[in-house]
Design a protein around this nucleic acid. Structure first.
Lengths: 160, 160
DNA sequence: CTCAACGTTCAGCCGGTACTGAACGTATCC
DNA sequence: GGATACGTTCAGTACCGGCTGAACGTTGAG
């Protein structure tokens, strides 16, 4: 593994760690981001110099979050992983759902907490409105971005 | 502190903790979100049942991230804190800057890492383009949201 | 000047959790 | 059948970071 690749994977490890994921998950992600085809658990483990147990757990976890895809090959017992296509959209959607949880909490607070000051009530309502507005904007923007990004992907999608 | 308020602050603590902040920071934020005027460090510490040291550190940290504002009063030595106005925009901007770090890392990788597969290079370039696109969309949406949200704020802004 | 009221800093403790190595279960091949 | 190649699970460890209490510096009041 050349030093630039190592540097890149380490940086991804740090960045994803700052987002609340285990560092190894970030490294796996960073490494897969630079691979054109899927990699097996063993390849990942040896390339990153970590235990296969960690790779197994973290890769499965990443797959559960849709940032990585589990790939199997006929006549091959091994598990392969690659970054998901539409990675950016997936990450955006995931982020939106996180915000949604936040906006939901605010909404529930506004309804359940005894608020004596109208200003506070207005603040919470405003936050909810802002979230709804931005969610709409981001949603339509995502819809506009994807289609003319990769024509083949759009064709595949409409063929479903 | 009534049970609903406690419930709300705890939930905020959990949510912000999931975003990578200390739980106490989330609790402070949640509590301030329900207050109409600024609160002192001691008020926060006793209300939350935590040490003043923690409140001091975390409140300052939150202020550094622009999610909370440091308020002082003439003839009063104490430090007060309240949630920032334009909270939503601040959080959006903060999130955008996080993404930017991510996009920067991808860009640097694309330039520095020896990439043998054109598909990988294209993937990285596409990610950068998607980020730039979304950053633009979100930026203009924020600009459109704020003005007709709080007219007085718009007036203040245009007076600069 | 002395004392109280603040905020800040720091060493130490404590809790959580990421990571490992070994054991295990299962499938595939000989 | 045994042996190998997989992935998974789990107990144990090591580490990291949050939180605390105590000590400290500073400001203001009496």
């Amino acid at each position: 593994m050349d030093p630039q690749t190592a540097r890149f994977t380490e940086r991804m490890g740090q960045l994803l760690e700052a987002e609340g994921m285990p560092r190894i998950a970030g490294r796996i992600f960073g490494l897969l981001l630079l691979q054109d085809d899927a990699r097996s658990l063993d390849e990942l483990a040896t390339a990153l110099g970590v235990s296969k147990a960690s790779v197994s757990t973290n890769a499965r976890n990443l797959a559960g979050q849709n940032v990585v895809e589990h790939v199997t090959r006929p006549g091959d017992r091994r598990d392969y992983y690659r970054v998901t296509p539409n990675l950016f959209s997936r990450m955006m959607e995931q982020r939106l759902s996180r915000w949604r949880r936040f906006a939901d909490a605010v909404g529930e607070g506004r309804r359940s907490v005894p608020l004596h000051h109208p200003a506070v009530r207005a603040r919470l309502a405003e936050y909810e409105a802002a979230y709804a507005y931005m969610a709409g904007v981001i949603g339509t923007a995502l819809g506009r971005w994807e289609p003319h990004r990769v024509p083949r992907a759009a064709a595949r999608r409409s063929a479903r």
